[in-house]
Amino acid sequence: MVTGETQTTRIRMLYLNALLNQEIAFFDNQISTGEVVEKMSGDTILIQDAMGEKITKQK
């Protein structure tokens, strides 16, 4: 489970870094703040769950 959390934290930081490097118009025209938070949280939780299941099954 620790590996999943570590990787999820890393992915969140990379995701946030990528978002902060976007042009400001991206947020005006393409996506709202709520959508960003929702997608980042939902996607990383799925990744964390999947990694946790794979590591648990391998032991």
Rank of each mutant, 00 (worst) to 15 (best):
M40F: 01
K39W: 13
M1P: 04
T33G: 12
L19V: 01
L46S: 03
N29S: 09
M1E: 09
D28C: 08
D49I: 13
R10A: 06
N17S: 15
G42V: 09
E5G: 14
Q30I: 07
N29T: 15
I47W: 05
Q48F: 11
K39V: 04
L14G: 05
I47D: 00
I55K: 05
I45T: 15
V37P: 00
D49P: 06
V2S: 08
A50P: 04
T44P: 10
Q30V: 14
T8N: 02
I45G: 06
Q30L: 02
L46V: 06
R10V: 04
D43A: 12
T44A: 14
T33S: 03
S41Y: 01
Q30H: 05
V2N: 04
Q22D: 00
K54R: 14
I47P: 00
Y15A: 10
N21M: 09
L19M: 09
M1V: 09
R10L: 13
S32Q: 01
T8S: 12
S32R: 00
N17L: 10
M40K: 06
S41R: 01
M13Q: 05
K57F: 04
Q30T: 12
G34R: 02
K57I: 02
K39C: 03
E5A: 02
K57P: 01
M40N: 14
G42L: 13
A25F: 08
I47K: 07
T56E: 06
N17T: 13
V36R: 07
V36E: 00
E23A: 07
K54F: 14
S41D: 00
F27M: 07
T6Y: 04
M51C: 03
V36D: 00
E23Q: 07
V37H: 06
T33A: 15
M40W: 15
T6M: 01
E53M: 09
T6E: 04
G34H: 06
I47R: 11
G42D: 06
A25D: 03
F27V: 00
G4C: 11
I24Y: 05
D43T: 08
V36A: 04
T6Q: 05
T44R: 07
T33L: 07
T33N: 10
I31K: 11
R10P: 02
S32D: 05
I24M: 03
N21E: 06
M40E: 01
L19F: 10
N29F: 13
T6L: 09
G4E: 07
L19T: 00
A50R: 04
L46R: 15
S41M: 00
G52E: 14
E53F: 15
E5I: 13
